[in-house]
Write a protein that binds this DNA or RNA. Structure first.
Lengths: 257, 257
DNA sequence: AGATGTGAAGTGATTCACAGCT
DNA sequence: AGCTGTGAATCACTTCACATCT
């Protein structure tokens, strides 16, 4: 789930399980909410409920970070916020570039959660010359030609790809060549990257398909053990699953004014 | 990662592992691409490469669906597309509603991958009366007042929440009350739902934070085993992790009593 | 020969349950 | 008395390796 080709051998002594890392942001968010309400301490039980996990898991997760709690009392909210932030690397701020300023790219640029969590949108990049100079989320869009220059002069190591699928690998290659080592990919394609580069993928249609699977199963259960196979046209299925006929793939390239 | 409160005991005989279900859409996409190029058959090795997994895993995954391959030959592309589509429930089309037509909601509405994969956007819903009637992606936005009516008259069972965090739980409750049993949540909040309702979450800032963690570790390894602890201001950390003071800041209060 | 399908072994994550600290 | 921190047990997923079939 995590990356395309990572093979982190977990040789490092500081081996925090991947599953734990994936939950730290969840805890951080819950803790931040408590912090804003000036709650001084919290028990594993309470925090777990707020984060949507069970308390044993939470305690085990925290045990990988160290012993930051107080027995009989709980965890100091502020201290824990700091420790998790540090662990996640959020005490520095990360410049990110977003490539592909269509609907989705614009949504990402406007997403408030970035700025407030240690990330800074260093640049918005799009291949369409007509987009160049247009302000999106208060930042002028730059042309793809500038990509390498932007990456290097800003020391960007994290890139977000929100281009159509057909352009994604090419953009990815350029990002990596320019020095980016972590990529968040919204395009519905498998990206190939060299060792040492992390890729995480977010795919809207995959999430929906997983929901559909469970939804179908619910319906099937009502009707009895045999899910009442919808026989239907074998041929239809290929069409159902088919990509749009668009020039290249899914993600819409343009954005309305 | 899957759901908020699912507890599917996998009692059903047809127990396909969750991890396998999560990969089926990946295989389906790769197969669809092959199908469009009129490739008749594919080996586990080839398909695995196209989907970005290893071949043993793929074969094991397929073994849960049945024996759809031919030894010595491989898998029939069209047939497999059909089988996976059916397994995922994509041979019927699912009406979905999208609630919250901001940047992200609009991006989702325009996302071509829905229509082509068994999903149909039945309605776009927003709380802002000024949005009502405006066409987004060719569909007129409807006001939240219509929510229950829309759900019921269209038989919608899948809802997408793209509202600000503060509104998400309330929207979720209404969706569920009206009959929605699967929710894809883009708001950065933990949703509480009754048993039998599935929730999947997509959270942009969480994905970035996970990348930041790995990115930091890469940087740390160059510099030596001890990541050079940045002592710094303990106070600063709370700010770093804190929500922006924006109009409707992300994280709402903790659990209601 | 060449590929699938699958028991068995291995690895990783979750849950249990309780010892140990405050 | 209460809550953390953690070994041990359990469960889930992955990988191996090879018997089996075309």
């Amino acid at each position: 789930m995590a990356t395309g080709r990572t093979h982190r051998p977990a040789t490092r002594s500081r081996g925090i399980p991947e599953a734990t890392v994936a939950r730290l942001p969840l805890y951080l968010r819950a803790l931040t909410a408590l912090s804003e309400r000036s709650v001084p301490t919290v028990s594993s039980e309470e925090l777990a409920a707020a984060a949507g996990v069970n308390s044993a898991k939470l305690r085990k997760d925290f045990s990988y970070l160290g012993s930051y709690g107080t027995r009989g009392v709980g965890y100091d909210v502020e201290y824990l916020v700091y420790q998790i932030s540090r662990e996640l690397g959020l005490t520095q701020d990360w410049p990110v570039v977003i490539v592909g300023i269509g609907n989705l790219g614009a949504a990402l640029a406007n997403y408030g959660g970035f700025a407030s969590r240690g990330f800074r949108v260093a640049a918005l990049i799009d291949a369409d010359p007509a987009m160049a100079g247009k302000p999106v989320a208060g930042i002028g869009v730059q042309h793809t030609d500038e990509l390498e220059h932007i990456i290097e002069s800003n020391g960007v190591s994290i890139g977000v790809i929100a281009t159509p699928a057909g352009a994604a690998q090419q953009v990815c290659d350029r990002l990596v060549a320019a020095g980016v080592t972590s990529i968040l990919n919204f395009a519905p394609t498998v990206l190939t990257v060299p060792d040492g580069v992390d890729v995480r993928k977010v795919d809207l249609s995959i999430e929906l398909q997983i929901l559909a699977f469970h939804e179908q199963r619910k319906a099937g259960e009502e009707a009895g053990p045999d899910g009442g196979a919808p026989v239907a046209a074998t041929r239809a299925a290929a069409a159902v699953a088919g990509e749009g006929k668009g020039p290249d793939g899914d993600v819409p390239a343009v954005m309305p004014a």
